[in-house]
């Protein structure tokens, strides 16, 4: 089991009392699976994603990656887990504006101490079709190109898990489709586990499993696997 949660819960304190943004959730995700988490805005999708990725800590319950309980780790150790096993793609791309496309892609590999960071990054950028835009800064790239850079960055450390938060949310339909295709293509090629938050049902349909979030409650959407 690659990812496992047991009775995972997240509460936040507000001026009107405690808000349960994630009801106790138990979930298992196998290596190589592609999972979509769908739901309305504010339903708690992103909260679940942040807990699964170890970006945030749960109020109760456990989440483990590769049998390591993230709750037992401190911030530094969780960062290490992310560095070793996790890649990210965000709705707003989150590239570092003052680094070029190439340098953005190299960054995770460099942080992990990978000596071949540049070579890998060049290859990946070639693969996403940006081989000729290596020295461009994010603001010199279109939205679709920026997201392709982000995809290349996500794959650079050959992560086991890829978290994608509304990866096409900021793109027009045509560009969004191209990015989707690219994402799934690369995912298939590398056999990475993909966990994607989206409210695009068409995109969700491309995943093997679809989980629906409603008011902090998670439920598996039963359907025929294609």
């Amino acid at each position: 089991m690659l990812i496992q949660t047991t009775q995972l819960r997240k509460d936040v304190e507000t001026s009107e009392g405690i808000l349960h943004i994630l009801q106790p959730t138990s979930l298992q995700i196998e290596a190589g699976e592609t999972v979509a988490i769908v739901g309305a805005s504010g339903s708690g999708k992103s909260t679940l994603l942040s807990l699964l990725a170890g970006l945030d800590l749960a109020s109760a319950g456990d989440v483990s990656i590769d049998n390591v309980n993230l709750g037992d780790l401190d911030e530094e150790q969780r960062a290490k887990v992310r560095a070793d096993k996790v890649g990210f793609i965000f709705q707003s791309f989150l590239l570092i504006p003052s680094l070029t496309a190439l340098e953005n892609v190299m960054l995770p590999a460099e942080l992990a101490g990978n000596k071949n960071a540049e070579k890998q990054a060049r290859e990946l950028l070639g693969k996403v079709g940006l081989g000729d835009r290596l020295t461009h800064y994010p603001n010199q790239l279109s939205g679709g190109e920026q997201q392709r850079v982000a995809i290349a960055r996500a794959f650079v450390g050959t992560p086991k898990i890829l978290f994608a938060d509304e990866p096409t949310g900021n793109l027009d339909a045509a560009t969004g489709h191209k990015v989707e295709d690219l994402l799934f293509e690369m995912n298939q090629e590398s056999g990475t586990t993909l966990i994607m938050v989206t409210h695009d049902s068409e995109l969700a349909e491309r995943c093997q499993r679809v989980l629906r979030m409603e008011a902090g409650k998670l439920a598996e959407v039963e359907r025929d696997v294609a």
């Binding site: 911030e75 960062a79 992310r82 560095a83 070793d84 960054l107 942080l111 450390g157």
Partner: peptide, 16 residues
Amino acid sequence: YDVVAIFKTLGAQRAQ
């Protein structure tokens, strides 16, 4: 702020 958040998300250690 954002740069640091991205660094951390990408797995950077605090010391780094």
